[in-house]
Computed example of a mutant assay.
Amino acid sequence: MKAKHDTREIGTEAERLAESFLIARNLRPIARNHRCRYGEIDLVMRDGAVLVFVEVRFRRSDRYGSAAETVDRRKQKRLITAARHYLKINPSNSPCRFDVIAIDGHHRIHWIQHAFALDST
């Protein structure tokens, strides 16, 4: 990632990097940036029969904690609520999971599958 000051631009670039990473691992993109009043789901992907809600986090440095650590209980609750909203609009009988893609300032990607559960509120 280039050194940029615009947070939105950095986030968009991180999401593109994460999506490419997941596609290379045979996940199929379904939706990007699903927004609702409860929050936003960065990526919705399909991993075989599983619907995967992906939260992408970027941190230049882990001086104040890693990118993955920023997905705390509060953030998880918002993501779960946004995922429920997505499923209300796009009904599915597929099993679901939440993954986190954490990217650091050296472009290292840490993929946390099953980071938390739909019922972990």
Score class of each variant (00 low, 15 high):
81 T>P: 05
98 F>T: 08
88 K>G: 06
54 V>F: 01
55 E>R: 04
93 N>M: 12
7 T>C: 06
35 R>H: 13
114 H>R: 14
60 R>W: 08
52 V>C: 12
69 E>C: 03
25 R>K: 15
53 F>C: 13
27 L>Q: 02
29 P>T: 05
100 V>A: 10
58 F>A: 01
68 A>G: 04
18 A>G: 05
49 A>F: 06
21 F>T: 00
90 N>M: 05
14 A>K: 02
39 G>M: 05
78 R>K: 15
71 V>P: 03
39 G>Q: 03
115 A>H: 14
103 I>M: 12
98 F>M: 07
107 H>E: 15
2 K>I: 13
89 I>G: 00
48 G>T: 06
4 K>H: 05
112 I>Q: 14
101 I>W: 00
20 S>G: 11
121 T>F: 10
98 F>I: 14
94 S>E: 09
81 T>V: 13
21 F>C: 01
34 H>T: 05
40 E>M: 11
6 D>S: 12
24 A>I: 01
47 D>N: 15
77 K>Q: 14
102 A>D: 03
118 L>A: 12
71 V>H: 10
115 A>D: 04
91 P>C: 14
26 N>Q: 13
64 Y>I: 12
78 R>G: 04
60 R>Y: 09
111 W>E: 04
28 R>T: 14
69 E>H: 09
99 D>I: 06
101 I>R: 01
88 K>S: 10
34 H>Y: 15
58 F>Y: 15
54 V>M: 05
103 I>L: 05
18 A>T: 01
76 Q>C: 13
88 K>Y: 08
66 S>Q: 06
45 M>S: 02
23 I>G: 00
86 Y>L: 04
3 A>Y: 14
68 A>V: 11
27 L>H: 03
89 I>Q: 03
94 S>Q: 13
34 H>A: 06
81 T>G: 05
32 R>E: 02
15 E>D: 07
120 S>K: 08
45 M>A: 03
62 D>E: 15
95 P>G: 10
10 I>C: 00
32 R>M: 08
15 E>H: 02
39 G>S: 09
36 C>F: 08
52 V>A: 09
70 T>H: 07
62 D>I: 08
53 F>I: 08
83 A>S: 15
19 E>I: 00
45 M>R: 01
74 R>D: 07
75 K>F: 04
76 Q>A: 14
14 A>T: 00
90 N>P: 03
49 A>K: 15
65 G>V: 13
37 R>H: 09
85 H>C: 05
47 D>I: 09
95 P>D: 09
108 R>L: 10
61 S>W: 05
64 Y>W: 11
89 I>W: 04
28 R>V: 10
73 R>M: 04
70 T>R: 10
99 D>W: 14
63 R>L: 15
26 N>G: 09
95 P>R: 11
26 N>A: 11
50 V>A: 06
7 T>W: 06
52 V>N: 00
48 G>K: 11
113 Q>V: 13
35 R>P: 04
106 H>W: 15
103 I>E: 02
88 K>N: 08
72 D>G: 11
109 I>Y: 02
120 S>M: 06
68 A>S: 10
84 R>H: 12
18 A>P: 01
42 D>G: 06
63 R>F: 15
21 F>D: 01
19 E>K: 02
83 A>V: 13
84 R>G: 13
37 R>T: 07
88 K>C: 03
108 R>Q: 14
83 A>D: 12
50 V>Y: 07
9 E>H: 12
4 K>P: 01
16 R>Y: 03
12 T>N: 04
48 G>Q: 11
44 V>K: 02
87 L>C: 13
